[in-house]
């Protein structure tokens, strides 16, 4: 094995890592913004409210991310109306298609994670909030969300890692992310081991950084759950 290829192309790998981080970060942030209201509405009593959200999460959690990316990137071109609309320059680009698919995917998983956390709020806390005369909105803001988001932290950290790993699919639809770079290097030098092991090491480094950050967050936000020594 000859890892000098990797050092010669180190800049390319760094660029790929940056594209990966950018894509994942954007998808996670937008997904989080979408997921919060959806998770709250998902616990609504009216089936007309939670029904559509259930269908949305069912579809995106029940099908492979790869198929979702293909649906957006290859599939949307099937519609004449979309091809002629002002949105087409957007859907023509692999980057935006990947971002859209990733965002919708992570939003669906995050919605279900938050839904579970919200549903597990101790009833006494909500009763106490009601007894204090808080409005529904105030209950959500002051009581339900702060404790639910804390409870969702471990599951959400898993989702972040899954999103990072899922983002490798971007490399399949011509995006030069970490996997894309590895594929380029592999076909240029015919050296699969060096190319993919290097990409794997980058992914591992990012994964363990994420895990570390979430462990710190958990220490901070779960401080009240730690046994007192």
């Amino acid at each position: 094995m000859d890892f000098s290829i990797i050092f010669d192309n180190f800049d390319l790998y760094l660029q790929g890592a940056w594209t990966t981080i950018q894509l994942v970060f954007l998808a996670l942030i937008i997904g989080l913004i979408i997921a919060l209201p959806l998770a709250i509405l998902r616990n609504h009593k009216n089936p007309l409210v939670w029904g559509p959200i259930w269908v949305y999460t069912f579809f995106f959690r029940g099908t492979p991310l790869l198929v979702q990316v293909f649906l957006v990137y290859y599939g949307f071109g099937q519609f004449e109306a979309l091809r002629e609309s002002f949105l087409w320059p957007f859907f023509k680009e692999a980057y935006w298609c990947a971002l859209l698919a990733f965002t919708l995917n992570t939003a669906a998983y995050t919605t279900e994670i938050f839904r579970g956390a919200i549903a597990n709020t101790p009833l006494g806390e909500i009763e106490a909030a009601k007894a204090y005369g808080m409005s529904r909105w105030l209950q959500i803001r002051r009581i339900i969300l702060p404790s639910a988001l804390r409870r969702a932290l471990p599951a959400y950290s898993n989702e972040v890692v899954f999103m990072l790993h899922g983002s490798a699919i971007a490399g399949i639809i011509t995006i030069v992310d970490l996997t894309g770079v590895a594929r380029i290097i592999n076909s240029k030098y015919y050296s699969p081991f060096e190319a993919f092991i290097a990409a794997g090491l980058f992914y591992m480094a990012i994964t363990f950084t994420i895990v570390f950050v979430f462990r710190k967050l958990e220490q901070r936000y779960h401080a009240h759950l730690r046994p007192r020594s």
Partner: peptide, 9 residues
């Protein structure tokens, strides 16, 4: 630590 796609390739 590594995406399944990268491992598969």
């Amino acid at each position: 630590g590594i995406p399944d796609l990268v491992l598969m390739l």
